[in-house]
Design a protein around this nucleic acid. Structure first.
Length: 264
DNA sequence: ATGACAGGATTTTCCTGA
């Protein structure tokens, strides 16, 4: 089965990009971030016409995540547990039955955290601590777990086109990297880095300053796999070409193939 | 030449993002 993540930067602006990509890439599950719309504004009919159903956690103007899939999952969480006061739509988690047992997937839009020195950075770090807690809980089930999304963290300098210029940015700060490593140290695997250890590859290129033609990118969209999912990891890729299509998102899809089949 | 973006909305300007 194929599971993908994509920060689409407004699903209404990019409904055609979305349905075209679904038809080409044929994922079983697609985890979207930054849909930038409320639940009833999601292009549900277009997605259903492409052969998919959707679970949407929307919000007016900003943020918003969704889970698009061939079969209807059981939605487990419509917010990241641990802070009832957090009203930003950044997390949806669901469970599928597969040939290899239960599969838990989450679509995560992790806070950017800039500018460092404002309340945004501690909000990011607190969100990461909550994600660590949830990731820890999910390991107990020994299920296949795929925690995927826009993490807004470059794990290492290899994941940044200009590490010196970005050293003090919230995406590269030691605190952000440490918090990501803490999740990995629970037993999760960064799928792309596991299969492509020496490759410099990016998932985001800013719209500004010719970042795309100059390949000034960042690798910030990740799929973190539990040990049981990692055991079944067959392939992982970044659909770089999507950034060169008309009116693209500034992020591109990242995907894994797992040796298991979604039931039903 | 070292420039230069995009989306949403309390829209014709400002806020946000990375």
């Amino acid at each position: 089965m194929k599971i993908a993540t994509w920060n689409i930067n407004s699903v209404r602006r990019r409904t055609g990009n979305l349905t075209d990509w679904l038809k080409r890439a044929q994922p079983d599950v697609l985890l979207l971030q930054e849909i930038k719309c409320q639940d009833d504004q999601f292009p549900r009919l277009e997605v259903e016409a492409a052969g998919y159903c959707c679970a949407v956690v929307g919000q007016k103007s900003w943020n918003g995540v969704a889970l698009v899939s061939r079969t209807q999952p059981e939605v487990i969480n419509r917010a990241l547990p641990g802070d009832d006061g957090d009203v930003q739509a950044r997390y949806v988690e669901a469970r599928f039955a597969t040939s290899a047992g239960p599969l838990h997937v989450a679509s995560i839009y992790l806070p950017n955290g800039n500018p460092v020195g404002t309340e945004k950075f501690p909000y990011k770090l607190a969100f990461m601590r909550r994600l660590h807690q949830r990731a820890h809980e999910l390991l107990d089930s020994e299920a296949l777990v795929v925690l995927a999304g826009d993490y807004n963290v470059c794990p290492t300098d290899k994941d940044v086109y200009d590490p010196i210029a970005w050293a003090n940015d919230a995406l590269c700060r030691p605190e952000s990297r440490q918090a990501l490593r803490a999740i990995l140290n629970l037993g999760y695997t960064d799928a792309f880095r596991a299969l492509h250890p020496g490759v410099q590859a990016y998932s985001f290129w800013d719209y500004q300053a010719g970042a795309w033609p100059k390949n000034n990118g960042l690798r910030i969209d990740h799929l973190l796999l539990s040990p049981q999912a990692t055991d079944r990891l067959k392939a992982c890729g970044i659909d770089r070409a999507e950034r060169g299509r008309p009116e693209p998102s500034d992020h591109v899809p990242v995907w894994v193939e797992l040796d298991a089949a979604v039931a039903g």
